[in-house]
Amino acid sequence: MGRAGALTASGEELDGFSASVARAYFPHALAVKTRASGPAELRAVDLGPLRLARIGWGSEVAVESDHPGAWAVNVPRSGILEAQVGGRHVLSLDGQATVCPPDQPTRMTRWSADCSIVGMRVDRDYLAEEVASLVGLPVDRLPAQLDLRSGGGRTWMALLTSIGTEALADPELASDPRVCRRLAGTLSAAFVTACFPEATAHGEMRPRIVSRVVEAMEADPAHEWTASELARTAGVGIRRLQQGFRRYLGRTPTQELTAIRLRRVHADLLSGQAETVADAAHSWGFTHLGRFAAEYRRTYGTTPSHTLRCP
């Protein structure tokens, strides 16, 4: 269940504030480099596998974290965020995001006093599944920095701003688990799109777990596909496969297989390649002619025998 909240602190209270940031976002080691020039601020919302946070320290600080169990995507909305990420120097300003991997030391060497970030924390396993299902690539190929000024980066940033503002402002919205899952899925999918633009077609994701299974069914529609066979083809569990089909095609794998078979029968009946309706239906994997005829009529608005007679 999601949780939303806000907190402010003066420079003298940064130790307690740091503990609140650790609970809301990530545990870390804090080094304060300058006296406070303004109030510290923390706003956070928990969306289950994904958390959002708005963090400003009010002082220039250095922050070190291993980001246990989750990715951190930090977007400075003002000021300077300078970091060492996996041995790489990353300087992010407004319009850029620093992407920090889980379970690896990252040091924010300069988090300027005027730097306020919007942070997105994503559970390691959840994001790995999203990347694998959407683009078929390992999650460790995520970039260390993301450009938010154009393309998918700009789209994700707009969603992050909109959803974050809405969720933080409306605690009731963040308390509904179904809404939280939907918002987390929307943000994570948009983030993956932004990180892997080469794996998109016409601006839309190509979910590999779905495309692999559809390709396999298209190659052999008459095969008696089982749920476990399809899941092995996709490289995911049965539940994950069903979720992918519903999300991207709006139907189950079984319904998609039926649609593929119907198209093959329809083509054979139109072309005259089948002598009888039963021959065409059986050749493409339909074993119950009554159910087949009902599905055919529902799809094409006529009977298969009429199609065979009137090509």
Rank of each mutant, 00 (worst) to 15 (best):
T307H: 01
R110H: 07
H28F: 02
A194K: 01
G272H: 07
I209V: 14
H202M: 15
A36Y: 04
R107D: 07
P105K: 09
V99N: 00
S65Q: 00
S211V: 13
T303Q: 08
T165V: 06
G244D: 04
A29E: 14
R298A: 14
T258A: 14
Q242S: 10
L230I: 09
T161C: 10
A184Q: 03
G151F: 07
A24Y: 00
T8Q: 12
G164W: 01
H282Y: 15
Q273Y: 14
Q273G: 09
E12Y: 08
G2W: 03
R291P: 07
M1A: 09
G250A: 03
E166K: 13
G203R: 08
T165D: 15
A234T: 05
A280Q: 04
T254A: 15
S10V: 11
V45E: 04
P171Q: 08
T186L: 11
L148C: 05
A259P: 03
L159G: 07
M157S: 10
R264G: 05
E295P: 01
N74I: 12
R240T: 08
R23A: 15
L148M: 06
P311M: 08
V213K: 02
A53R: 04
G2F: 02
A267W: 10
M157P: 03
L47W: 03
M205G: 12
S92W: 04
R309G: 05
L183T: 02
V179S: 11
W71D: 00
A4R: 03
A169M: 13
I80H: 13
H282D: 14
T299A: 11
E64Q: 12
E224F: 12
G285W: 08
V85L: 08
T8V: 15
G152Y: 00
S59H: 06
H306K: 14
R297A: 13
R23H: 12
L81W: 05
T106M: 01
Q242H: 14
D66R: 03
A158H: 14
R182A: 12
E41T: 11
W57Y: 10
R181N: 08
F17S: 02
A9P: 06
A158Y: 10
D46Q: 04
S10R: 15
G164Q: 02
S305L: 13
R154Y: 10
T287F: 11
V213P: 04
G164K: 00
L81T: 01
L91C: 10
P177Q: 05
L160A: 10
V32K: 01
S78N: 09
L230M: 14
L47T: 02
E130I: 07
L127C: 00
A29P: 04
I117S: 09
R110D: 05
T303V: 05
A128F: 06
L289Y: 11
T161L: 14
V192H: 00
W71M: 01
E275H: 14
A70G: 07
